[in-house]
Amino acid sequence: MQSIEIKGLTHSYKGGKTALRNVDLEIGSGMFGLLGPNGAGKTTLIRILATLLKPTEGRITIDGLDLQHQRKKVRLLTGYLPQEFSSFPRLSAWEFLDYIACLKGIRPRQKRMSLIEKILEDVGLFEARDRKAGHLSGGMKRRLGIAQTLIGDPRIMIVDEPTVGLDPEERVRFRNLLSDLSRQDKTIILSTHIVGDISSTCSRIALLDLGRVIFDGTPADLASAARGKVWRADVDALDLDAIKTKYPVISAVPSVRGYEIRVVANRYDEGPADSVEPNLEDAYIYFMRLHAAAAAPPDAFVPSEERSPL
């Protein structure tokens, strides 16, 4: 049985903007990547899953529990880390986790204490346990965030854009932490628009664009869908700008002739080019630019400022 089943999920905000359109997903245990550009509907979906938002239509079950009618049980099952987590600045890491543990109904105190101690050690915050949240670094705060999702040992963890703003070292550390957790028979839903976050960790990916699921499968399936659509070519420096206007250029590395470029295209007509094996990033671009664009409905909810340029 799948952990999470989403059927016909649609959500419209006040004012008529539709953030999710008839989304169907089945999510099993392991790490599930929710990929999509800003404004694709990832956060809306995440907030619905975290019982913070009521969907306009559709049905979600989590471990067989109806999300709408059994919120309390669902909340017991889930841990949630929002996009930009911050704790109460005047509470220490320990106090904050203690508060959350209480809310999770963990009694008695002794049990809570040992649990918090372990979690703090797991996320590498034990030394900073008495430091007020206001005095933690960005990465530490994010780790405190993941620590609070771990309280109560939830079966399902919902993590929204966890690595935004972290330095590369913290990002790697964070990925590893999630990766370790995913091995504990948990379902981790990781929402991100950074392909790197999921390429190394997720066993399954859903690609969301303009409120629709445009891909649902394994990373390998995603990559293979872009097979034959990724090209490598050497171009003159003077031609690069013109090429960029025609094709999504994934990379442009200076070379002896000018630039060695990697583009996503159904066909490359600008000169000699080699078809190369796509990676996840190529596939993501392929889906966003070539595959899905044609299918975009005219009233799609695309906040312009949130549409990240490729």
Binding site: L52, R75, F85, S87, I100, L103, G105
Partner: peptide, 17 residues
Amino acid sequence: KRDRRTDTTEVIYAHPF
């Protein structure tokens, strides 16, 4: 006001109470 800071509140609100 404190509770309107969604980043903190939502963490709390997602818990069972």
